[in-house]
């Protein structure tokens, strides 16, 4: 039997909001250690890696490892049925053909069950090697969302240039060009407002706005985002999910022809 309970269903809602624009379906690998999802978008340009640790759940039981193929859009619809303060429990039997989402109101006067059919998926699990990155930037997630949104008006891609002066995001297109520079700011009043730049080597990489604007949908999960970059490898855009796990987006860079 598999059972995972979260007092705050809002966390799971936010997780779905953070992946639903990139993934139509994904395999949820459930084991003793927690729930893992790794899936590429349909164009195979980006990869989502989601990890929810078992110890982050309010109750967690997984007797046998399960691989459950789920429709992200269906799951997202079901989670929209949860009240903001509801508790959510995911439940499946061994060799399941479906998974049940159980929403319980805070005063336990309402219990709703939604059963979703699982889908068969042939999905390869890609190994993501440990990489040491030349630049690691931590910044407020709201700021990153804003930069991606604002610069997307100017072009289809954003160039990230990291130097010892700071990080410069720029875009250009038919209307003109724009750039936004951020310098390190560790004196911010609040930790979540800090900009921390750890640069080993300067670099310049270009990424498609379309994907970046999907990644920033994870903003509500965490006040800070971490961007890890090295020449010629995918960008890693990481958001922590409270004390329960993280969501990492990998994005292949663009190159000049």
């Amino acid at each position: 039997m598999f059972e995972a309970r979260l007092v705050q269903s809002a966390i799971l809602k936010k997780v779905l909001d953070a992946v639903k624009d990139l993934l139509t379906e994904a395999t949820f690998e459930c084991s003793d250690s927690g729930i893992q999802v790794q899936a590429m978008d349909s164009a195979h340009v980006s990869l989502v890696s989601l990890n929810l640790r078992s110890d982050g759940f309010d109750k967690y039981r997984c007797d046998r490892n399960l691989s459950m193929g789920m429709s992200i859009s269906c799951m997202s619809k079901i989670l929209r049925c949860a009240g903001a303060e509801d508790t959510v429990t995911l439940r499946a039997w061994d060799n399941p053909e479906s998974i049940t989402f159980i929403f319980e109101s805070p005063n336990k006067d309402k219990l709703a069950e939604y059963e979703m059919k699982l889908i068969n998926m042939d999905q390869e699990h890609l190994g993501i090697p440990e990489t040491s990155y030349s630049c690691v930037i931590k910044m407020p997630s709201g700021e990153f969302s804003r930069i991606c949104r604002d610069l997307s008006q100017f072009g289809e891609s954003i160039t990230f240039a990291c130097s010892k002066e700071g990080i410069k995001f720029s875009a250009s297109g038919d209307y003109g060009s724009a750039n936004i520079k951020l310098v390190q700011n560790t004196d911010a009043d609040k930790e979540e407002e800090a900009v921390v730049i750890d640069m080993q080597e300067p670099l310049k990489l270009t990424f498609a706005c379309r994907y970046l604007n999907c990644f920033v949908k994870a903003g509500p999960l965490c006040n800070q985002v971490q961007l890890s970059m090295s020449d010629d490898v995918p960008l890693v855009c990481e958001y922590k999910i409270g004390d329960i796990g993280h969501i990492k987006y990998y994005l292949a860079p663009k190159i000049d022809d």
Partner: peptide, 14 residues
């Protein structure tokens, strides 16, 4: 315009 690379290239390479 710059060409979009695919994740596949990096998994092979890594």
């Amino acid at each position: 315009a710059p060409k979009q690379r695919k994740m596949r290239e990096f998994f092979v390479k890594w």
